[in-house]
Design a binder for these strands. Structure first.
Lengths: 154, 154
DNA sequence: TTTGACAGTTCTATTTTAGAACTATAGCCT
DNA sequence: AGGCTATAGTTCTAAAATAGAACTGTCAAA
């Protein structure tokens, strides 16, 4: 497979995978949502090699998920901030955290707890239908080919 | 980083990434949710090398996401079926599809449309708070260390 | 007996990643 | 001025993962 054109496949999952579908990128995004912004901070908290961190940050900037914002003029220094496109990845990250909480836990309990500021309670993320508000389950969903997929593609 | 122990980190995202955090695994899971079950079917629809497909399927079985079920005795043939643990990955996949629909679309429109059998409508997946039912946004969530994370870990 | 379907395994070449060292700019201390 | 530290990278080689193609083994049907 040509990973370099995965973001042009007629499949929204492939396109997303092209951008965030590797281990380091997902871990970097976790740090972003925990308010980490600087190269050294990512590097020391993730123990990622500097080379790969540099690569991944460039890629995330290229795809419009992070913005590289100067915070010092001399010497020139930048920090990496989530754009709206990046903030919109939150459901993906939270869905992964929730699955990990549910299926990969150990006897020590959850590593992190999440509080919803609006209601003040500790919560779990739940995925619902935009139309009827009910909780979604895979078996209740039927898939149709949309306009972006010629039937031939399968 | 030691990828082989990522599933024991005191972080539910890391643990999830350890299992589904690579391109091929996510694409294989997409096929699973589209009712693909057999080795040859995965291989031809994904154009993945047989070697890697074999590896990834083994790993998904090892983590309890797929079950390897015989469907023919002579010759012995197996198909791969999502377990409940695997079905529970649905919100992750749908969150990725939705982000792709929203941010990686082209002029041709969506590749796939999703119909919710319960209400009969085409829908988008929405992530809400389990306690108050409101739509979740990253900035409204506050993170606390839970019992599974000694403060020292950070 | 030959062909074809299915579910893999094995092999070599290429690409990615790990790990460590190096570069560059500038502030601060003596 | 000279040396130390902080920050944000880049460059290099070795190790690991992936691609691509060929091969194995079982059985049914022609």
């Amino acid at each position: 497979m040509k990973w370099d054109t995965l973001d042009e496949e007629p499949c929204s999952l492939s396109r997303t995978v092209a951008v965030v579908g590797d281990r380091w990128t997902l871990l970097i995004l976790r740090e972003c949502f925990l308010r980490v912004r600087r190269f050294e901070a990512f590097q020391s908290s993730l123990q990622i090699t500097r080379h790969l961190l540099s690569e991944r940050l460039k890629k995330l900037v290229r795809f419009g998920i992070l913005r590289r914002v100067p915070y010092s003029e001399a010497p020139k220094r930048y920090e990496y901030i989530l754009t709206q496109k990046g903030l919109d990845l939150y459901p993906i990250i939270m869905a992964m955290v929730h699955w990990g909480d549910t299926h990969m836990g150990d006897e020590r309990g959850r590593p992190l707890l999440h509080e919803h500021r609006n209601c003040g309670k500790l919560f779990d993320p739940v995925m619902v239908c935009s139309e009827c508000g009910e909780v979604l389950h895979a078996k209740q969903v039927h898939v149709h080919a949309g306009p972006g997929r010629e039937e031939a593609v399968g």
